[in-house]
């Protein structure tokens, strides 16, 4: 179950003596298996919301339940463990490890799971085949196109079979064709593999693929 319940969520950054409110009393629900797009101008707080849902940042106040777990209450090590089991994160700039091959990049999250090397390799291979890169296993990121790198990043995000995929502008650094392929892939993961997908995007065409679109403006949900 990867339903998300956000209740009166606020996030304030403190820079020296200055308080910078980013999210202000946000409340929303994302049911299990949904595909949601978060849109809004720069600085509206959409990436901050994504980071809070993914447990890589902590809220200032409010409640955040992901799959029934109040992640704001988890300690650092517990949160890391929770992320490794429940979250697949896709970055705008792919963020692959340049000195690892495609299949090693995909294997990386599996190092945190008790599993034989052989099984890890098999699962990484399967994940890469799902994203259409079964023939690029031993390629390094420098030997792949931007679209292919993002597909490797998606394979890395799904290899440990998390229920929730978080994508921060996954097509932001790609041309239209490659971006389309990535969105096709996210749709497929949502439809066929029942992954809950939360995607931050500036692109209205990308947002059209989502079941629902949330508009954020100055930390407040406007739609």
């Amino acid at each position: 179950m990867a339903s998300i319940q956000v209740r009166d969520l606020s996030k304030v950054y403190q820079r020296d003596s200055q308080r910078i409110p980013v999210l202000d009393g946000l409340t929303l629900d994302i049911p299990d298996g949904d595909f949601v797009a978060l849109m809004g101008p720069s600085g509206s707080g959409k990436t901050t919301l994504l980071n809070l849902i993914g447990g890589i940042d902590t809220p200032t106040s409010g409640q955040l339940l992901v799959g029934g777990t109040d992640i704001a209450r988890l300690s650092g090590p517990a949160l890391a463990k929770w992320r490794s089991r429940n979250i697949g994160y896709i970055f705008q700039l792919y963020n692959l490890v340049p000195v690892l091959t495609a299949h090693q990049n995909v294997e990386l999250p599996l190092l945190l799971v008790k599993m034989s090397g052989r099984e890890r390799r098999q699962r990484a291979r399967t994940a890469l085949e799902i994203v259409g890169l079964g023939d690029r296993l031993d390629h390094f990121p420098r030997q792949l196109s931007g679209g292919q790198e993002q597909r490797v990043a998606i394979a890395r995000a799904v290899v440990s079979d998390p229920e929730l995929l978080l994508a921060d502008e996954p097509t932001g650094d790609l041309d239209r064709a490659s971006g389309g392929e990535i969105l096709d892939l996210l749709e497929r993961l949502n439809r066929e593999f029942h992954k809950t997908v939360v995607m931050v995007t500036h692109d209205p065409h990308a947002a059209e693929r989502a079941h629902r679109v949330f508009q954020l403006d100055k930390g407040v949900l406007s739609q």
């Binding site: 890391a80 992320r83 490794s84 994160y89 890395r156």
Partner: peptide
């Protein structure tokens, strides 16, 4: 960035 990615994937501080 890579350290951040490792931590996002669930690698602990230790």
């Amino acid at each position: 960035a890579e350290v951040a990615v490792l931590k996002t994937l669930g690698f602990s501080d230790g």
